[in-house]
Design a protein around this nucleic acid. Structure first.
Length: 271
DNA sequence: CCCGATTCCTGTAGGC
DNA sequence: TGCCTACAGGAATCGG
């Protein structure tokens, strides 16, 4: 699933190839993604020069001299550079044909992804404006995380999935970080204590960095800009491992449902 | 504001 | 072998 490490892996792989390129044409094959792909995107992108590829949470921002293309990979999306003549598959919904004979291609079988266009500051776009801090930002202090969790009674695993609290965390890294921090996924978010917040922030940063180093996690669909899957799946400690031994103490990993979504944890190591 | 349930979508796994 | 169902999940939205 494209969470922060997968989106950042995509960004790092693509940026050197995209920045400085001009878009010759935008081809939308399927308009109905999570939201309709706006017509302005096809009208305004041709002729635009890509100046930067940024990331905010799980969003990619292709900044051009005319406006910004906002992309989100949903749960099955991937972005690749392909020869402009390469035949598209059934789930290749969007191509940006570039001036170097290649095309940036968005593939998204489940169509939870997004391609939007804005000519203002993308960071104030309604989808991005309320995003919480970047977990890898050094300016984020344990006390800041604590303050954001204060008073919240929902399960910490659920609260970590809320991008307004911290940006970019999905189910895989929420579970992995809680394991490393020794925190039970159902613990009320506001009851972690200062020490718990600090351990959680440290654990989040550790799993995100580990995954980044491995090129992200591929469960099924994710590939980076050159088509390579991520290698972090092999290193997952609890996610998707119900019944298998805890890597620390050997107790079988448990799976529970927390708000209709699986949570994985070690009943002995996580309290 | 906070929280939980629901919704979108399709490929895959598992049961029979 | 083939059909059917359950499940996976990001995040907006809605109702309480």
């Amino acid at each position: 699933m494209p969470e922060l490490p997968e989106v950042e892996t995509t960004r790092r792989g693509l940026a050197p190839h995209l920045v400085g390129r001009r878009v010759l044409r935008a081809r939308v094959r399927r308009r109905r993604l999570r939201r309709p792909v706006p017509w302005a995107l096809e009208r305004r992108l041709p002729g635009a020069r890509i100046e930067a590829l940024d990331r905010r949470g799980k969003y990619l921002l292709a900044r051009t001299d005319r406006g910004t293309l906002i992309l989100h990979l949903g749960m099955s999306g991937s972005l690749r550079l392909v020869p402009a003549t390469a035949r598209p598959g059934p789930h290749d919904h969007l191509d940006l044909v570039l001036d170097d004979g290649r095309a940036l291609r968005l593939r998204d079988p489940r169509r939870f992804g997004l391609a939007l266009w804005t000519e203002g500051d993308p960071l104030v776009h309604p989808l991005l404006a309320s995003l919480g801090p970047e977990p890898l930002d050094r300016r984020l202090r344990p006390g800041d995380l604590c303050a954001r969790l204060a008073g919240r009674r929902a399960a910490i695993r659920n609260v970590l999935l809320d991008g307004r609290v911290v940006a970019g965390i999905g189910n895989i890294y929420a579970n992995e970080a809680l394991f490393l921090a020794g925190i039970h996924p159902a613990r009320p978010a506001g009851r972690l204590g200062r020490d718990g917040c600090a351990r959680l922030l440290r654990a989040l940063r550790r799993v995100l960095r580990e995954s980044l180093r491995a090129g992200g996690t591929t469960l099924r669909d994710f590939v980076d800009g050159s088509g390579e899957p991520g290698r972090y799946r092999l290193r997952l400690r609890v996610y998707g491992r119900a019944g298998r031994p805890c890597p620390r103490c050997g107790t079988p990993i448990r799976r529970i449902l927390l708000g209709q979504r699986s949570a994985f944890f070690c009943p002995r190591c996580q309290r």
